[in-house]
Nucleic acid binder design. Structure first.
Lengths: 209, 209, 209, 209
DNA sequence: GATGAATGAGCCTTCATTCAT
DNA sequence: CATGAATGAAGGCTCATTCAT
């Protein structure tokens, strides 16, 4: 929720600021990210930053929201085709889209993952509102339905299953990001997808009857 | 690697410093942890801290090492009985011992997990030396052997399997720690172990023939 | 002395600005009052404030003047009946009217009292012009006349007497204002007037033959 | 309550800091006094100020306490001879000693008076603890005793009487201070005492039977 | 005439680290 | 060996004021 001031800014300037901020937050935790540095790098007066955003947290929330929206855009298609697909294929699709998002927008993905790593639960809840558990809930519903359809082992605990899927999703993205940062080891997209396939193979077996 | 000065210290003083440092690093990322605060809380001259340790990083490394050693102590037993157990039982044992360690030493476990979350790869490598991948390697060997013995599905990719096991292990511990911090929801030990069982049930299925 | 621009403003807008400014100056010293906050609260562009007023001081002077005028309105009646009343009754009337003013317009009264408390004499003189001493002069004349009429002790020093009356007047209003702010202890109007009566009883004795 | 660090400082440095701080707080309200300026003027690193004092408020409290103690020293004698003197003579003595204190230590006296003028009651209470009302209580006791001894008019309301005496005391000191700041008009000590005499003359009459 | 964007100085505070004693 | 004093850079944030549109 930036101030109107920010939204009225000429596009060029607005983007310069946003990108610099995204840079900063993708490399630092909230606490060690610095508005001063962002202002300096974006060549903007420090005071201006506070004309645009209420405070550091405000800017952070905004960036986080951008990240979430962008990710949504990647996921939206496969969310639409939920009904027609097998459980494991939905998961597969979601993992892949998630990785594509991360691969195309490593900084935004990094910010989201960084947020997930924050320690201070009060801070997280404050920023996230209720949506923290949405992701888990989504997977829980998915699992329930798959159980009904007889696609997966009914003995699987729903909550625990959702938890595993979420955790691995985050891990995989983290893995991708850290390798992207270290160009040395950057795997080809094919290799990466190959690995996702291997992970999903295990998951599939883990869940199936 | 504290300086000799630190090792010569009377035990009481040494412990006071260590515990305060553990407190601080368990609640903060490396960047936002503060030597000033540690010195103040431990009632030690700030200057002294620099007589004991080269700098903040040095102290951090030491604390991290303590954490690793302590965890070793929990794992050591089941590492000895590796040969006699089925693959899945080893994993189970390791998860449980890991959780016991975290439950008994939440601060130390938190520090380790915090470290895993650090972004700066250069920093991580510098601190860790090579040992980052040791954990993965260990699981890789385990998986290879299990394959040989015919205990698990040979189609499983060894590296990916190890990766999954490590990731979930970290996630589970993180989960425990955040719930311990937030007493409200603290599950009983039984419930927790129950959940571990459920996770392992999925893993077991995921890996088995 | 606002700029013509301000005077041309639609009444509603003008009042909104004034009231917000009065709010701000009644709660802060000149130095810590903030034009930024006033603009924000009054929902006016910061730039506009500088089209209406030369600067912070200019606005302050204007507000102060408004306060003075408003107070005049309360006092005007009893200033007209000066001649017919005994000295002590004039004083009494002035105190009471002053308190009524403060009770009805606590913010305006607060601003005036805050001004009196400012430290920087140069600043005060600059703002006030000569009128600082007017109040004292007025009481001096009153005292002189009362002496002539034989109503009060001629041994009383005129300047000192005026000074006492002014001081106590300010104190009493301050007292009222701070109690109004702190609702807890707010005395009823009756109690307050009762206390004024008690103060005047002492003053009366102090001045009489 | 400065930190030990401050108390251990070489006298010269300690005094330089204190005097600069006294300067600053005597010319500014708490809000507009600046630690940065104090540090700069005292030729001390800004950071050092925070080695000496917890924060701005801490420094302020300390300075205020110094002021109170110094004033005590002036009053102590006449507080000892309370019993032997007539009510009016006690008051007289207290006013005179108070003025002497202000005349000898105008800055310290200014700080105390500035504090009395602060608007924020919460702030005042926090700083003062309970002692705010002590001064009034003291005069109330004095008045009660004087009534018992038949020295003053029993019809005088005790609380109101105490209030008047306190108010005038503050006013008188303020008066002295502002004139000392403005050397132009500085009255001779004799003249000043003469005026005190005149004030007390009125007070005496106000209180006597 | 209204606006809002820009700015830089300034504020309080924290910190890692150094160094003389 | 312990200490504590010193420091300057940095951080988040606020403000009065200017100026182009």
């Amino acid at each position: 929720m930036p101030k109107q001031t920010f939204l009225n800014l000429p596009l060029e300037r607005r983007n310069r600021i946003l990108e610099t901020a995204i840079d900063e937050f993708s490399q630092n935790s909230f606490a060690s990210a610095s508005i001063s540095k962002i202002a300096a790098k974006a060549d903007v007066a420090k005071g201006s930053m506070y004309q645009y955003f209420e405070n550091k947290k405000d800017l952070y929330k905004y960036i986080l929201e951008i990240s979430a929206q962008k990710k949504q855009e990647y996921l939206i298609d496969c969310l639409h085709s939920l009904e027609h697909l097998y459980f494991i294929d939905v998961i597969k699709e979601l993992y892949i889209k998630g990785l594509e998002f991360a691969s195309d927008n490593p900084k935004l993905a990094g910010i989201a993952n960084n947020f997930l790593k924050e320690n201070d639960m009060k801070f997280k809840k404050e920023i996230m509102g209720i949506s923290i558990e949405k992701s888990n809930q989504f997977f829980e519903i998915l699992i329930e339905k798959a159980k009904e359809k007889g696609e997966i082992n009914p003995k699987i605990d729903t909550r625990v299953g959702a938890y595993i899927i979420t955790s691995l999703n985050t891990s995989v993205i983290d893995y991708l990001l850290s390798y992207m940062q270290y160009e040395e080891l950057l795997q080809s997209k094919d290799e990466l997808m190959d690995n996702v396939g291997k992970i999903l193979f295990i998951i599939e077996n883990g869940f199936k009857k």
